[in-house]
Design a protein around this nucleic acid. Structure first.
Length: 878
RNA sequence: GGGGGAUUAGCUCAGUUGGGAGAGCGUCUGGCUGGCAGCCAGAAGGUCAGGGGUUCGAGUCCCCUAUCCUCCA
């Protein structure tokens, strides 16, 4: 059975049991800051499992795109590990329970019209004391007792080990179904049924309280089950992934076969490139933070495998088409983005090869050093430096070291990495309050926060929760900056950061109490006012007044509406491909990333700015309505790729030209933007450009700053009109050049004359001239020129020159080469001795040394002291 | 968010315990020369990212800022 067929059959089967077929959630779940990527099928149903909010349905089934990196080192090595994979699931929220879950699973697996697996090849497990599940398997399914195994809480409980070790919260026993292949190979776990039926409260005993509403959460690995059905020994041999492996072999230049030399490497490439392609499709591009970083890491690990086989140029990008070919049946929208995803991947590959290239120089130096010192291995410190500064994965350093017959101290490396991890710490500000447990608890007791900020800026509300240090607290009285505190209200005017728009700031107050809100974040339907208490004691249950900084909000509204105008202007100017890739909206400032190849021309920039300001000038009305998704689509609202929208959406319309789905705060008329100026246009990633623009006050200030800067420069350069600035600057530059040249020629000439005099008046010791003179009005460069000329004209010379610069003494000594080698005369000895006389110090090389001192009056003493050193050195040796 | 590193000629980069700013490529000029990075000679081109400090003296040491790279979260 093909993988696509399996996926469809599963969903169809559970639809026939009354489950609502829901689309896969996106890979980066929105409104859930507790995970980087969607790790399992149940993730999108978190609030349903918690019993929060209205239930539109009580049974569901999905095929969920998932990404996990915990077992990344096993990928390609074992038969079943992946980073990206698909999870088939059926879910019950207080609806059906164990009996149905078990019987339906059995029916789907064994009935001819569904999977038709041989029942004799299946065994199951249940949790130690879950007699209910045991009974269902034995009596209703009819399995003999020897095919039902009881396992402990680490195997058959979710979360693993929860009863004795926690965490607190919903949990339950599970039951797993195993397949035993006819080849006699190892058994395969193909389905895990989780019976969520307890709430854990504290440590044992008697800590598992039955839930009033019991849930079902099951997961069946798509690739695993496909492997079973197709009778192959590894997930990578199924119809879909095998194609990617074959394509990877072709791209790297070695044929793929499961047991071949490069099989493991090619499987890794296939797995990682699939994960990368699916992520990039959803707009998660390689980057150095969060999800983007994981994508970059996956991409680089995949590249590394190819690199070590000998492929030293980009190749992953060429696999994107194959990946999307095998994924498009389930996710049709991937087909359209092959080209842009491939371009992004290729760009990152080229980037990485460039980094490796640069790092190779350092690597070679390290190898060379090892060879010289006879070391047999590269130190952990060196490997760590290659890792943290040049992006060399440890595997890469090891493989490349092996080619030079060197090992790598990997233990030390890992030790250093651990220290590094420790030092890096976690994000302190948000982490302290965005804790899952307390948030769920507040959600349960009080429901979501009612947001009133579209209409008003001030709201009287009730405090429903306070979080400090990841704990729910009844009240806070700690004044100050120490630890961030999150306050939750039943209703609020504060906008929580979302859709690129930053969170509001402001104050929450009551009689004698003041809480300053520095940021507002959201967790799904909860709004968290994050900040510090300034006065009094704030307690849960208090009635407070919540007031946002309205001026700042007004600037944010201007910037947000201008963002829509910019989006519109970009499409008009550059074409429909200029789609939004990300945005940030702040107080009168905005940042907008969009798809486009290459930099914009100055004309395009001007045209975009003109278009935006034309829309502002025409004063088009801005209206906001909440409609269902279908209506919005019909109205032609812009939808983003890889973005998942709720069924009811907020649609923002401006005049006749712009319709977007947007939860942000907007103006009522485009004219209120006032002025919009493009400030910068820059690359973010290949195929993605960023525009920064200012609106309102800030745009005006920017213009004024530029003007006043020009005026200042004009004043400084003594021109009456800014138009003359360029000519004036060029003229000045030329003048300085000419003067410098003239000065140095003049100096050389005048030095030449004086040098003759100095030499004729110099004393001679053992055939060498000793010149110790004061040169008034010279600078350090001039002293050098003197020393050079004296040495070259005299042949053998020992020189000490002194001058006064800025009220301090400058000394310079020089000795010709012959005196250094034959008599051991050193300029440094002389200058040090001389410097003592003027209260300073110095040094340098034998042929040239410099020093300085403070006592100008003693310059002659210094010269005498220097001359004495020379005399002694020359005399003693001669 | 934190750690490490980088920033020197148009480009790619050297620059040793602090003591005279360099190379290759490119550009320009002159000469030589039938070829695939033509050859030879000469020249122009630098606030050593910016600011502060230590020092007689800072590209070099310390602090701050900006930008980029990289690792960790």
């Amino acid at each position: 059975m093909k993988t696509d067929e399996l996926r469809e059959k599963y969903l169809a089967f559970f639809e026939s049991k009354g489950c609502v077929r829901r689309p896969s959630d996106v890979l980066v779940p929105k409104g859930d800051k507790t995970v980087l990527f969607t790790p399992a099928g149940m993730n999108q149903f978190k609030s349903q499992f918690l019993g929060i909010g209205p239930l539109e349905f009580t049974r569901a089934t999905t095929c969920q795109k998932c990404l996990r990196t915990g077992d990344i080192s096993n990928v390609g090595l074992t038969a079943y590990h992946h980073t990206f994979f698909e999870m088939l699931g059926n879910f019950s929220f207080g609806d059906y329970f164990k009996e149905e879950a078990v019987l339906w699973a059995w029916e789907f697996l064994t009935r001819k019209e569904w999977l038709g697996l041989d029942p004799d090849r299946l065994t199951v497990t249940v949790y130690l004391d879950d007699d209910e599940a045991f009974g269902i398997w034995e009596n209703q399914v009819g399995l003999s007792r020897d095919r039902i195994r009881r396992d402990d809480e680490h195997e058959n409980f979710w979360p693993a080990g929860a009863p004795s070790e926690g965490p607190d919260g919903v949990c339950g026993p599970c039951s797993e179904i195993y397949y035993h292949p006819p080849t006699g190979g190892k058994e395969v776990e193909i389905w895990n049924l989780v019976f969520t039926q307890f709430n854990r409260v504290g440590p044992p005993p008697d800590n598992l309280r039955p839930l009033p509403k019991k849930n079902i959460d099951t997961g069946m690995g798509l690739e695993r089950t496909a492997a079973v059905l197709q009778g192959v020994e590894s997930n990578f041999e199924i119809d879909t992934l095998k194609q990617v492996c074959l394509a990877a072999g072709e791209a790297v230049g070695v044929p793929y076969a499961f047991a071949s030399e490069h099989g493991r490497a090619l499987r890794r490439i296939a797995d990682h490139v699939r994960a990368v392609a699916m992520c990039v499709h959803e707009g998660v591009v390689p980057d150095n933070v969060k999800q983007g970083y994981i994508v970059r890491l996956l991409l680089r690990r995949a590249m590394l495998e190819g690199y070590l086989i000998g492929k030293h140029e980009p190749f992953l990008y060429s696999l994107v088409g194959t990946v999307f070919d095998v994924m498009k049946a389930a996710y049709p929208d991937v087909a359209g983005s092959t080209e842009s995803v491939a371009t992004t991947v290729r760009e990152e590959e080229e980037h990485f090869l460039g980094i490796v290239d640069r790092g190779l120089a350092k690597f070679d130096r390290i190898v060379e050093r090892c060879r010289k010192s006879g070391e047999a291995r590269i130190t952990g410190e060196d490997a760590f430096e290659l890792h943290t500064q040049d992006g060399f994965l440890i595997e890469m350093t090891e493989a490349m070291a092996a080619r030079h017959n060197l090992a790598v101290d990997a233990d030390r490396f890992r030790q250093l990495l651990d220290v590094h991890r420790e030092k890096s710490g976690a994000g302190v500000f948000l982490d302290a309050v965005m804790a899952e447990g307390p948030l769920d608890a507040i959600r349960k007791t009080s429901g979501g926060t009612q947001f009133l900020g579209y209409e008003v800026t001030t709201v009287d509300a009730k405090v429903v929760g306070i979080i400090a240090e990841k704990q729910l607290v009844e009240s806070v009285d700690e004044i100050g900056e120490g630890h961030p505190i999150a306050v939750l209200l039943d209703r609020t005017p504060f906008y929580g950061e979302a859709g690129g728009q930053v969170g509001d700031v402001g104050v929450i107050s009551e009689e004698g109490v003041l809480f300053q809100v520095l940021d507002t974040q959201r967790d799904d339907d909860l709004l968290l006012h994050i900040g510090h208490l300034r006065r009094g004691t704030l307690s849960v249950g208090d009635t407070v007044r919540a007031v946002i900084d309205a001026d700042r909000r007004a600037g944010i509204r201007r910037a947000h509406s201008a963002t829509h105008l910019l989006h519109h202007a970009l499409e008009q100017t550059l074409g429909p491909h200029a789609m939004q890739r990300g945005s940030k909206v702040e107080n009168d400032a905005l940042r907008f990333d969009f798809s486009h190849k290459g930099p914009l021309t100055p004309e395009e920039r001007l045209h975009i700015e003109d278009l935006i300001n034309a829309r502002i000038a025409e004063g088009a009305p801005v209206s906001t309505v909440v409609v269902d998704q279908k209506t919005a689509k019909e109205r032609g609202a812009k939808m983003l790729f890889g973005e998942k929208y709720p069924d009811r959406v907020r649609m923002v319309t401006m005049g006749e030209f712009s319709v977007e789905l947007c939860g942000g705060t907007h103006l009522s008329n485009t004219g209120q933007v006032g002025l919009c100026r493009l400030i910068a246009e820059e690359p973010v990633a290949k195929g993605v450009r960023r525009i920064v623009a200012y609106t309102g006050h800030r745009a005006l200030e920017r213009v004024r700053e530029t003007e006043s800067l020009l005026a200042d420069v004009a004043r400084a350069l003594r021109v009456s009109q800014p138009q003359e600035l360029v000519r004036r600057a060029e003229q000045l530059h030329d003048e300085i050049q000419t003067l410098k040249r003239e000065l140095s020629q003049f100096t050389k000439a005048s030095v030449g004359e004086t040098v003759e005099t100095f030499l004729s008046e110099a004393e001679t010791v053992s055939g060498a001239k000793i010149v110790c003179r004061r040169v008034d009005g010279a600078d350090r460069d001039m002293l050098r020129e003197f020393a050079d000329q004296l040495r070259s004209r005299a042949g053998s010379a020992a020189v000490l020159l002194a001058t006064e610069i800025d009220g301090k003494v400058a000394l310079l000594a020089a000795v010709s080469k012959d005196l250094i080698s034959s008599k051991g005369v050193k300029a440094g000895d002389c200058v040090r001795e001389a410097a003592k006389a003027v209260g300073g110090g110095g040094g340098g090389r034998p042929d040239l040394a410099e020093a300085g001192g403070k006592d100008v009056a003693k310059i002659d003493d210094a010269l005498a002291a220097g001359a004495a050193v020379y005399r002694k050195a020359l005399g003693a040796a001669g």
